[in-house]
Amino acid sequence: MFTGNNNRTYNPRRYPGFLFITLVCLLILYAPLLVVMGYSFNDNLSITKWSGFSLRWYTDVFTGPEAAKFKKAAWNSLSIALSAALVATSFATAAAIGMVRGGAFNGKTLSFGLISIPIMVPEIVTAVAMLIFFSMIGLKLGYLSILIAHIVFCIPFAYLPISARLQGIEASFEEAAQDLYADRWKAFRYVLMPLMLPGMLSGFLLAFIISLDDFIITNFIKGAGVETLPTAIFGAVKQGIKPNIMALSTLMLLFSVLLVSLSYFIGRTDKEKNDAN
């Protein structure tokens, strides 16, 4: 009887104070971002004083004296992220099929280790190694060197969700297709790929955001006149956190949130579809 009583009052999922800590955690995570968002609407040039709501810094981002620089950096960032994520996703998809559907083979662990190297090595080490490598082979630092580096460190980020997805797909689907005399390419193209798509898409998005986010490696191996948004912002911030930087940051922030929400909802629709099946 006594035990039963105890069980009714004790909820193993509830700990006093954990809600409070979670709220503190969210406060720490959001406070700086919200402050910057708020101040990006400040009419005053001096960022420490508030003098009314204004969109002037958003206009400044697009038409101000630094607009051309930011526009170019934004194009570089987007085109590099897009290309790097596409290449990395294709490589990672192939690699995931090889690893998950390739049967048991010697060096599987080694192969997995190789794929995950770019995640495990600290960014600054990757940056140094690539700078030395590019200067040694005489590749002029610039757009291409940044693109190569981004492809390399995007591969594991694209690989993880794709292989996770693939592991959850029964092999019987492609086996059935092959029984019906579909060749391997057709089995992939018409059977496996449609099933893998959500994984490929989240891999692509992850790689895309990781590429957009990168500062350390890009900063090391960028060349003449080629800036990405993070390196351009870093340069500007050194001369003071200006309101236009805050406006630009807010825009990038909203862009990231949009992408995450997109991947979140894709994941959810997919899950619901699976659950319905």
């Binding site: 085109s79 290309s83 596409l86």
Partner: peptide
């Protein structure tokens, strides 16, 4: 669309 876009961006740069 993204493949096309990135090709255009690279060419444009």
């Amino acid at each position: 669309v993204s493949i096309g876009l990135s090709a255009a961006l690279i060419a444009g740069s």
